[in-house]
Simulated assay, not measured.
Amino acid sequence: MAEKKEKVKTTEEEEGVLLYYKYANVPDLNDLLNFYNSNCESLGLRGRVRLASHGVNVTVGGKLSSLEQHINAVKLKNPLFEGTDFKLASCNFQSNQQILKECGFTSLSIRVVKELVTFGSRPLLNSPVISNAGRHLSAVEFNTVLQSAGASLANNGSIQKNNIILLDARNVYETRIGRFQTSKVETLDPKIRQYSDLCTWIDCHSEQLRGSNVLMYCTGGIRCEMASAYIRSKGAGYENTFQLFGGIQRYLEQFPDGGFFKGKNFVFDH
């Protein structure tokens, strides 16, 4: 009688996704470019890395251990990254080619660009200044405002229930699978096809935003930085624009049951 061979269990290393950005003056772009090319290639990372004279914007996927090594290398590389919010989560999507393609993880793209995120399909007379971006709200603060719909955020008094607007800074492909929802607060979904369309949408809906307390959110935070600065640049009536620090990902880490977010967080939840 032939002996039964015991099956050997093989454990594949868990995959993950990493998002982070940093607005800061980059003293040597070529040096930073060489670092990312060498580091990402050696660790087998795939995704998008955008470098500019004013900072970095990174979305990469790979083995969790490789992503952790990348974070450590980045921290050691330059004091430029001090205080950077690295958003890392497990995300086992490697077996699904469609998801890999949608998330941009089929190859590695590292480029030097003029803008970390392209805000506006046409040149702006006055580009928004990042230092004028909306005040960051922690996940807990953001949730508290939605829960009470009357918390005091503005300098000139309390926010009334009907004076809060939730504004999603993501594209329609992301908002259709998940977004914040609450009957207490008006939610605006621009339904844009790409981020560069948001500038025009804001211009067309500026009167709707005027005088309101605008709570913005996106996946990881970077799109809200530029968009909130643009809204605030419109002057009086637009001062009370806020953004969710760390984006949806940090919110879901704080509220694992989803809180006011319903559905999936694109990229992380695949």
Score class of each variant (00 low, 15 high):
133 A>H: 10
128 P>W: 00
133 A>N: 11
133 A>L: 07
126 N>W: 12
137 L>D: 04
128 P>Q: 13
115 E>T: 08
135 R>A: 14
133 A>V: 11
108 L>F: 00
113 V>F: 01
135 R>P: 08
126 N>V: 15
134 G>F: 03
133 A>T: 13
119 F>E: 00
116 L>K: 13
118 T>V: 10
113 V>M: 07
130 I>E: 12
129 V>T: 10
131 S>H: 07
128 P>K: 02
118 T>G: 09
118 T>E: 13
116 L>D: 05
113 V>R: 13
125 L>D: 11
114 K>R: 09
106 T>V: 10
135 R>S: 09
127 S>V: 00
134 G>A: 04
118 T>L: 13
110 I>H: 01
136 H>S: 06
121 S>L: 05
134 G>R: 04
120 G>V: 09
122 R>K: 07
121 S>N: 04
125 L>C: 08
122 R>Q: 14
132 N>V: 03
124 L>N: 02
107 S>F: 01
111 R>N: 07
105 F>H: 06
115 E>V: 08
119 F>A: 01
128 P>L: 07
125 L>E: 11
114 K>H: 13
131 S>K: 12
107 S>A: 06
105 F>R: 02
130 I>N: 14
110 I>D: 00
110 I>N: 00
126 N>Q: 10
119 F>T: 00
128 P>M: 07
133 A>S: 15
106 T>S: 06
107 S>N: 15
132 N>H: 09
111 R>T: 12
121 S>K: 09
123 P>A: 02
134 G>I: 02
126 N>K: 14
120 G>K: 03
110 I>Y: 00
128 P>G: 08
120 G>A: 09
136 H>W: 10
128 P>I: 05
116 L>E: 10
126 N>T: 15
108 L>S: 04
133 A>R: 15
120 G>R: 01
124 L>F: 01
